[in-house]
Amino acid sequence: MLRSMMERLGSVIITLLLASIVSFVILRAVPGDPARTVVGPLASDDAVAAVRQQLGLDDPLPVQYWNYITQFLSGDWGYSYSNGADVATVIAARMPATLELAFFAFLIAVIAALVIATVASYRRGVFGIVSKLLAIIGLGTPPFWLGLMLIIVFSLGLGLLPGPSGRLAGFLEPPPQITGFYTIDALFAGDFTAFSDALARLILPACALAVVPGAFLVRLLVANQSEVMQAPFVTVVRAKGVSRWITHLRHVVHNALLPTIGSAGVILATLITGSVMVETIYDWPGIGSTLVNGIQRQDFAVVQAFILLSAFLYVLANLAADLLLELVDPRLRVRAGGVRA
C-alpha cells in the first residue's frame, strides 16, 4: 500500500516536472519580446535591453527555468508583464469563479450523461441511435459557438436568462466569501436574491461548458453499458426473475460506471480548455479569461502559472480517480487478512 502510494507520488512529480519544462520551452520559443511589452512600444532599444537583463531574459534557458521553478515553488509566481499585478494574487482571486463554473458544468454533464446513456442503452433502437448521434455532434461542438447560441436563444431571444455579464448583477453585493462559490455563499448568508441571480447567470455558461465532457461521457457510458449487457451475469440476474429495467439499473449501470471514473482526468481537461473560451464569451471573471488576456499580451508568468496549475489539477484528478476506484471497486479493494480466503 505504502509502496504503491510512493510510486504514484513519483509519477505525479515527474509528470509535473515534464509539463513545466515543455511549457517553459515552448513559451520562450514563440516570437515576440516580453521586454518590449513591459517598456511599451515607444521606449528605446537600450531601455528594452536593460529590462531584458533585469528580467533575466538574456540568461541561458536552463538558468531561466531554474530561477523560475525555484521561485514558483517558494510561492513567488512572478508578476504580469503588462500590468504589474502579482500572478499568484490574481489567480487566487479569480480561481473561485472558475471552480464554481466548472463544478456546475461537471454536475450537469454527469447527470445528463447518466440519464441519456442509461435510457439509450436500455431502449436501444431509435433512441439509442439518436443519442449516439447527439454525442458525436456534442463532442465536435466548439463551446464558444454553443455559448453564443445559448445567449442568442435564451437570453436575447426568449429573455429567460440574463445576458453574458459576469457572475452577479452589478447592483448586487457579492455574498461574504466562505467557499468562493457565489451560489453557496449566498445561501449561507441567507441572501436569496443573490442566490437566484448567481444561479441564473451560471446556467448558460455551465451548460455551454458541460456539452463536450457530457458528450464524451455519454459515448463512454453507452459503450460500457452495451459491453456489460453482453456479460453472462446479466442473463443470470434475469433468470432470477429480476425485471429488465431493474437489472439494468442495479447491475449494468453500476458495472459501466466504474471504468468511467478512470476518465476523470480527460473530463477535467475538457473543462479547463472549455472554460477558457466560455469565460471569455460570458465575461466570467475566472482564470480562463485571464489566460486569454495573458496570451494576447505575452505575459509569460500568467500563462506559465496557468499551465502548471492545469497540469497539477490534471494529475490530482487522476490520482483522486485512482483512489476512488480502489474505494468503490471491490476487485481493487485490499482486504485486511490476505487476498483470498
Partner: peptide, 25 residues
C-alpha cells in the same frame, strides 16, 4: 415471465466467474 423465472424454472450457466456480478457481494 419475471414471476416464473427463478421460481418455477432456474438457470445455471457455464462460466462461474462471468456469471456473477463482479461488483456485488
Amino acid at each position: 415471465l419475471n414471476a416464473m423465472r427463478g421460481k418455477d424454472v432456474s438457470l445455471v450457466f457455464q462460466d462461474p466467474l462471468s456469471s456473477l456480478d463482479p461488483v456485488k457481494s
